[in-house]
Design a protein around this nucleic acid. Sequence first.
RNA 1: GGCGCCAUAGCCAAGUGGUAAGGCAAAGGUCUGCAAAACCUUCAUUCCCCGGUUCAAGUCCGGGUGGCGCCUCCA
Length: 460
Amino acid sequence: MTLYNTLTRKKETLQPITPGHIGLYCCGPTVYNFAHIGNMRTYLFMDWLRRALLSAGLELTHVMNITDVGHLVSDGDEGEDKMEKGARERGKTPWEIAEEYTEVFMRDIASLNIACPEIVAKATDHIPEMLEFVQKLVELGYGYETSDGIYFDIGRFPSYGELSRLNLEEQQAGARVEVNEEKRHPADFALWKKAPPEHIMQWPSPWGQGYPGWHIECSAMSKKYLGELFDIHTGGVDHIPVHHENEIAQSEALLGHKAVNTWMHGEFMLVDGGKMSKSLKNAYLLSDLKERGFTPMHFRFFCANAHYRNKLNFTWDALAGARTAYNRLLAAVQAHKDGTDRPGKDALTAFHDEFYEAVYDDINIPKALGILWNAVRTPIRSHEIYDLALSLDAILGLSLGESPEIEAPELDTGIEELIARRQAARAAKDFAEADRIRDALRDMGVTLEDTKEGVKWKKC
RNA sequence: GGCGCCAUAGCCAAGUGGUAAGGCAAAGGUCUGCAAAACCUUCAUUCCCCGGUUCAAGUCCGGGUGGCGCCUCCA
């Protein structure tokens, strides 16, 4: 299997540190709000990577963090903790907010067929590990104390910026971030913050009451669960310049050697060709998609059509196209279920091999999906093709065994009634009325199919 | 200003130097209500532009142009 390593900017052959085993750490959500579909794209990438590794017979130790403390509103180590801000706005405690949004997040990823990592680590459950990490960095001379916290001294870590290929000298210091006069270098980042009395989340430390910096959690928890050197670390591309750069600095300063072999990053999702942001009101949630008649599987299928390292442009039209295609794919798979034709072993093997070749070539899901289409869209009908499709779904995770008709019992009565009225209109040759009802049903997300056996309907 | 990514049909999008996957849309056909849905068929001599390397370039190199992202909360 080859995977693209952000650190070297090359595809590299995966060589597990421990033969047959992979240690995988994936940056998880900050649970101060709902995760939007752009976030979800990154977790879909995580899931496809995970499935690929498992299918290759590798044993996984997969860790994902839940950030429930320390992630400040600004990367300049200033401003409010996101958790406290979210809590204040909602009139709840940060703990309640964390629990609430963690639950929603878990439900969301489950609905997308994203497998939950074996180890889900909450930052607040690992304060002692983080404190120990920070103390060691201070002892080693990489951390220093200011009036508001403990900071990492980038000046003592010359290779800083390797992952993002940033040259700190050329960056505009304090372009948008207020310069903290006490910091030795503008890019020095907080390992631990001293808590003002009103700060709700705070813990005792050698430097008084405080709370951890955002970056330290990933270094401390990955070290705890995966050891001093592990195989793969993933996250969104936005984490390359600051978060992951800081992780590398902290971990390597502490350990004296590298901690991660392969860094992988999922690209962003765009909306209508531009960035997704809350201020533009285009940071859609799965629930927004649902309101417009799209299921999580439609979205998963949509994302399966682009490679994880390329930006994917989200538009409602494109999603509608994905829905149509997805339903046709399910129907095509179903059509093979009871088929008795024999496709020939060579053909089946070829599809199977090409499919996995694509998957193992830096997780090329869109290419693999194309191969599935080719396997499924043949004039013959064979249960062997059906079996093949379902086995390949171990990677795709698209619920390919499902029937394209998704019943919606709570709506059945109204729909059946409308269909009956439409049938009456058709019998009376009032096709204008019949079409009006049909269009109304379509707006409700119900598609009709007139067959010799009567009217069938499906909801997508 | 600095860093980086990307440019393939109306749209989305794969593509490991060897002759352009797949999907949506569209057009034609079957069926039908001169319908929808479904199914079948068709649909890029060409990959932003200009040079170069090569027997061979969408794929490599150089230079343009354009788009986007990051450097500021972000997956």
